[in-house]
Amino acid sequence: MELLKINNLKTYFEISAGTVKAVDGVSFSLNYGESLGLVGESGCGKTTTALSINRLLPQEGKILGGEILLEGRDISKLKESEIKKLRWNEISMIFQGAMNALNPVMKIGDQIAEAIVLHKKVSYKEAIKRSKELFELVELEPERITNYPHEFSGGMKQRAMIAMALACDPKLIIGDEPTTALDVMVQAQILNLLDKLRKELNMGIIIITHDLSILGETCDKIAVMYAGKIAEFGTVEDIYNNNMHPYTNKLLSSFPNIHKEKIIPEPIEGVPPDLINPPSGCRFHPRCPYAQDICAKEEPMMTKVSEGHEYACHFGGVFNEKE
């Protein structure tokens, strides 16, 4: 069943230099118990997309179009007071480097309990009890809720932050680079944990990352974003093994694969475009090795390959022919 559906979302930033079209017509959907990876280089709009969902956008940012359906209800036009009720209760977020967001002079359990009391009508005692349950859920020893943040390692703090995000049984968790600051081994632990949780609790998870290679273990679907638009959307298998968009292909080959030949991949020339004046036609065409005249003139529409696998390119899969 569909938990979240985003239709043609447009989020722009009004700054002194002009209008930044950070998210420009993004659509995707997510089911209960499913996890989606939102991937792209820095500045591609992946974080803005997430912040639009629970409306934590900075002042300059405005949602100017499209809809965000949470369980069929459009939440993109809700008033601030109404969206406040959704945050944490329905949608919670784990930020990058969140483990540094703990108050160093307060016990971790108290910090979680405080959050619970703020959002639910429960006594402090019940909230502490709930904190213990949450600790167990994220595989921390429940006795340690009386610890202070400095007694926790980085990975444990991130677990505590996940516990906090789970406090009000949200239906959707958004992780913004939840493992970027962590070591590979801890990253694997955290990703395993998130995977386990969403299956157990039947939550939807969106993982925002620049690292396409970590999603193979944990995600069902991947949305590749480029310059504020979705370049390709599909299941992990579709994206890894049967990708059609040159950007996906290039991005994927940028990661070394020890099971393949040992060659340094070609970099993607150029830099991501300025989103105040994005390139005409296909936004990737200035950097695309396969670009033709039409790419600069006409914006490619989403083309369907199979159910749930779409891409936006005039010459989808062109790289396969050359080889």
């Binding site: 694997a188 690292d211 396409l212 970590i214 193979g216 890894y240 990661f255 099971h259």
Partner: peptide, 12 residues
Amino acid sequence: ALLSIMPIPEVH
């Protein structure tokens, strides 16, 4: 152990 958890862009 490091090798076994190494992120590889493959479905695994």
